[in-house]
């Protein structure tokens, strides 16, 4: 009888590092749209008893200045005040259609939820939003799709104006191709709470019509962004 010798291969064992509440978290944000830009993105890990925004409630002045003009100054001040962790990479610049940006941070023990906001361009006060998403404690890769919200702070007239809070119209940065001389889609905002954005209307004229946005380019369907979170 033949003797068969078996060689046993012992696979290397990987030992997990001791788990603490703090987590090494990588966040990647991808713009899924064909024709919209996002302003610099606030990616904030904070305590679960705080909230940057809440659908159905009035926008804070800090959310308003983000949603109307893309400024993260007020949100950054709040994040610092509540000892939140904030990603620098995603706040570095505008995010073009289908582009993505990512960064990593070591979140503090108590900062167990993730919130993400950035203005949608062109819009009057549209923004992408993730509100108090619990960061998983189990290592892995997680995907979240974001909808477009309306801050409810400005009428969606869709004509070129200003980005400062309370100034009507849309900001018009140079990387956007917009029309001119739109008469304005509407002068009122019916729902003044944060709500799902009804979408841009646009028109097909670059020189007149109701809107300064282009109806075949600057509309969207949800979701508008994909967030991939990797917890190590």
């Amino acid at each position: 009888m033949k003797q068969i010798t078996k060689l046993l291969t012992v696979s290397a064992l990987t030992f997990a590092t001791t788990q603490s509440f703090a987590a090494n978290v990588t966040v990647e944000i991808k713009n899924l749209t064909q024709g919209l830009y996002f302003t610099p993105i606030a990616t904030v890990a904070h305590t679960s008893d705080s909230s940057l925004f809440e659908v159905g409630e009035m926008a804070s002045s800090e959310i308003q200045e983000m949603a109307e003009g893309g400024s993260l100054a007020g949100l950054t001040t709040i994040a610092t005040a509540i000892n939140a962790d904030m990603l620098a990479e995603t706040a570095a610049g505008p995010l073009a259609p289908t582009a993505k940006v990512s960064g990593s941070f070591m979140t503090a023990d108590s900062n167990t939820v993730l919130s993400i906001v950035a203005m949608i361009l062109p819009s009057n006060d549209g923004f992408i939003g993730l509100d108090n998403w619990t960061i998983p404690t189990e290592a892995g890769t997680y995907t979240v799709y974001l909808n477009a919200y309306d801050a409810g702070t400005e009428a969606n007239d869709e004509i070129i104006g200003g980005g400062a809070p309370g100034v009507p119209g849309m900001p018009a940065p140079p990387f956007l191709t917009l029309g001119t001389n739109g008469s304005g889609v509407t002068a009122t905002e019916t729902n003044t709470m944060i709500h799902i954005h009804p979408g841009n209307i646009g028109d097909d004229s670059a020189t007149d019509g109701k809107s300064d946005v282009t109806n075949t380019v600057h509309r969207w369907l949800n979701p508008v962004a994909k967030v991939t979170v990797t917890v190590q």
Binding site: G35, P97, I201, T216, R219, V224
Partner: peptide
């Protein structure tokens, strides 16, 4: 990319 939707003649195109 994700599709922005069709506009249609009824909605201004």
């Amino acid at each position: 990319s994700m599709h922005p939707g069709v506009v249609t003649s009824d909605d201004g195109l």
